[in-house]
Design a protein around this nucleic acid. Sequence first.
DNA 1: ATAACATATGAACAATAGCTCATTTGTTTT
DNA 2: AAAACAAATGAGCTATTGTTCATATGTTAT
Lengths: 120, 120
Amino acid sequence: MDEQNTIERCDYIHAHEDIIAKVNENMPDEEILYDLAELFKIFGDSTRIKILYVLFESEMCVCDIAQLLNMTQSAISHQLRALKQSKLVKYRREGKTVFYSLADDHVRSILDQGMEHVAE
Amino acid sequence: MDEQNTIERCDYIHAHEDIIAKVNENMPDEEILYDLAELFKIFGDSTRIKILYVLFESEMCVCDIAQLLNMTQSAISHQLRALKQSKLVKYRREGKTVFYSLADDHVRSILDQGMEHVAE
DNA sequence: ATAACATATGAACAATAGCTCATTTGTTTT
DNA sequence: AAAACAAATGAGCTATTGTTCATATGTTAT
């Protein structure tokens, strides 16, 4: 009750009441925004982006990806785990080999949207 | 010439020649992929995502955003700088006040694509 | 010019992330 | 069962990042 807002505030808020109401109305839940940020974090690393581009062509095993990107098996495996946890890639095992592939079309559309912005 | 590839390799590469050729053909330049990752890094923080959602409703000054998100002016200003550098927001000065707004429609489409994936 | 306000910025610190190295797990072959 | 191979994992190290705090810059009003 007597807890004070310690954040500095400007003398008067510029935004009108209706705007503020709309912001609060349309702002997704904290949890969703957190998840969204986590998802984009995954795209925020060029190694992972390269892996995704490789998988655009075909499913591929860890070692092949490592060779194509000239990186260690361990580094690729760690990154594939992140991609897996975000449900951006899926995998199937075939003997000793594990083949990874893109989970769905979102990967492509998200990267394409980003590309459009970067290309400008 | 005598520089050796120190990366471990599997006994045989699974991917066929034509696949490897296509990967190398369709893989964007290193520099582009770096820029792309940098762009997604910007989306990879929930504070910045919140700022963008706020700006969906209306242009807004730094202090208003800070109040809406209950954060310090400094923190918001720092993040707005990142958004500005990535050309995701633009600004105009009106006296002491600086109003920020979304730079273009890419912001919305990128966030929407991400949302689609998260919502699953 | 001075005071007041809005914003920007730099240094510092804690938390996070990506890579390497060593090792483990899972599978196949002998 | 043992050896060999592919992949996964954990610890450790360095680099990066988001916030805070203090201060500087830019603009307006007195």
